[in-house]
Design a protein around this nucleic acid. Structure first.
Lengths: 358, 358
DNA sequence: GGTGCCGGTGTGCACGTTCACAAAGGGTGA
DNA sequence: TCACCCTTTGTGAACGTGCACACCGGCACC
């Protein structure tokens, strides 16, 4: 096919190439238009598949597009529509399994909807770094934010910056229902707790996560409620920081007194640390002490002993977050994401839990 | 301060607000310019801190900017400069610890340089999904790509799409030196192997990673070289898939014969699975069999027994990748990142390795 | 005292896309 | 036959920024 049509506006003589063509620029919609013999607007219509376009025209334009390897310029589009088609993810500790899995799911779902994901990690989760992270997201003109971090502080910072952006957290809560997915962390925690009670345990500790994390709070709440519902005397939960390291030291501390036969840990990493401490004392899991975790990270099945834990569908969480955020904005299927029921976590019983010693 | 200056081009009467102001648009440099009594170009100069601007003018402009909460519009900037200031990260299995940590570091480093990170996950790492991931990155007009995936296939796909984009892999290699960081995976593997040999082991297996991953290949190479250098007869490595699950089944298989006293696993997860299989047989680590891993994920210190492994600085890797990519492009400090020496991994000896049974 | 340079600033256009509007062509009903 | 509508297409103007260029005043130099 001859590229030089009669209407070529560049005015170059065919035999003589442009004087040192300084155009490393990608082909634009106008280039496509020229080659297809239509106006740039028609090309635009094809791109946005506008209804009223003749099939023949459309296919001709499409052919030219593939020939030219045309790629729509997102910047130009964003400029004129003032829509970035970007959503932000705000994390702290993003390399942990739970957050990482959710991010992955968010990304997949976002791409599926034609969106782009920008992440910002608030190292340390202090309000200064949260502010910096939010600023970064704002610089990218994100249209919404998914929060995987201590939401309370994020909330404050967001309010402080006095800008309203749709955002979603991955965890259910009483306080922030408008922004939260209805994932039933509490039920998961109750399942774990009930399991231990049904095995016959009465001295049960809870190793909780940081309390400004909504999911940590919800799990603790679930633990406390189940204990009280079953009339088991409750001890005050221990507040941890999600790490195996903390679990280890907490375990060593707890073992000094040993007024318990089971521990429900708010995540699998801390459970691992607990088991390490227990083994260090020459004790056995589950013979002497039962352990239940939360999350079911892939490694949990291969801990020694394999860990009884609560499986959580991080991917589903991520997908819902995106659905909520995007559905919300597009006005498309407003309610679907919101009220399609909670994600119910399931208890995976492995070998780290057993009846208490006689 | 009065917003309505005499030169206000909108022409609205001050007492009468614009008829249902349909301007949710953010303030632009022209708005700033008007309020500061300068031209938009001057504002632009302030933004890009051009040298020749009077201090007084500059501070006046800056004041107006903060007053208006002005944020530069990245889309417009990208459009005119045809630079996206985005770098892409191509992963498979991004929720695993290693990739996740590197991504985090990449992101931090990128933000520091004023760049934006776009990730694309090639689920399954087959060439079709790799193609899709690359397309996604290209749609965002990334200026470079960091690859954390089976590079061989990514290479092929990239070549197939016949587009040249600067890219970097996180692993050293013989083949792709132009694109690879000089992180000495091989030395790490040799350290681990030597450790086992020095403990007295002679029957040593290597559980390798997928061979289209360069790091897996490099670690295997290191293992083989060290074994041959030390004149220890070598058995063929087993090719795994990085998961604890695989390690478990590989362990069960190996234990049928038991012609070995130690296993060097190419990552910590597979090592965990191996130990699980060994425990299942009623054997003890390290009394009966020694295990050495690779990566030193945070959980490794709390495995049972705590895992001897090779620590790798994923964050440093990420930072270097960005330095290489960005330094490369900006022409700024071309060589610094490239030749500042290798990242040498270190051996962390814990309790999973010991002399072989007598 | 003209000429040239330099610091500081302004003017206009370009980037690639979408949007508002208009226009050409064909059909349809009165 | 004319007025009107619908489908399909085109025209021109935005969007917010950077770049090339021009301009202005002051100073140094011959």
């Amino acid at each position: 096919m001859n590229v030089h049509t009669g209407t070529d506006a560049s005015g170059y003589v065919t035999s003589e190439p442009p004087p040192e063509a300084k155009r490393p620029r990608a082909p634009s919609i106008r280039d496509v238009a020229r080659l297809a013999g239509v106006s740039h607007q028609t090309v635009s219509r094809v791109l946005n598949n506008h209804p009223s376009i003749r099939d023949e025209t459309k296919s001709r334009v499409l052919a030219v597009m593939t020939e030219l390897q045309y790629r729509p310029n997102r910047a130009a589009r964003a400029l004129v529509t003032s829509r970035s088609h970007a959503i932000g993810v705000l994390t702290s500790s993003r390399s942990e399994y739970g957050p990482a899995s959710s991010i992955q799911a968010i990304e997949e779902a976002a791409v599926l909807h034609g969106y782009l994901v920008v992440t910002a990690n608030a190292e340390g989760a202090d309000s200064r770094s949260i502010g910096r992270a939010i600023t970064h997201l704002l610089d990218q003109a994100v249209e919404g934010i998914v929060v995987i971090a201590p939401q309370v502080r994020v909330f404050d910072t967001l309010a402080e910056m006095q800008l309203d952006l749709p955002f979603v957290t991955l965890q259910s809560t009483g306080r922030m229902n408008d922004h939260a997915l209805s994932v039933d962390q509490m039920t998961g925690a109750r399942l774990a707790t009930r399991h231990l009670i049904e095995l016959g345990h009465r001295g049960i500790y809870h190793l909780a996560g940081p309390q400004d994390w909504i999911e940590a709070e919800a799990r603790m709440e679930g633990f406390l409620r189940e204990m009280s519902d079953q009339d088991v005397p409750t001890t005050a939960p221990i507040l941890g920081d999600w790490t195996a390291e903390f679990g280890y030291y907490a375990g060593r501390e707890l073992l000094r007194v040993r007024d318990f036969t089971a521990i429900f840990s708010s995540n699998d990493q801390m459970a691992l640390g607990l088991m390490h401490a227990i083994h260090d004392e020459g004790l056995d899991v589950p013979r002497d002490i039962s352990i239940v975790g939360f999350d079911d990270i892939p490694e949990a099945a291969h801990f020694w002993p394999p860990l009884t834990t609560v499986r959580q569908d991080f991917a589903e969480l991520g997908r819902r977050a995106v659905a909520l955020l995007i559905g919300d904005e597009d006005g498309e299927a407003e309610g679907i994401a919101a009220d399609s029921g909670s994600v119910i976590p399931t208890l995976v019983v492995r070998r780290s839990s057993a009846p208490p010693p006689a």
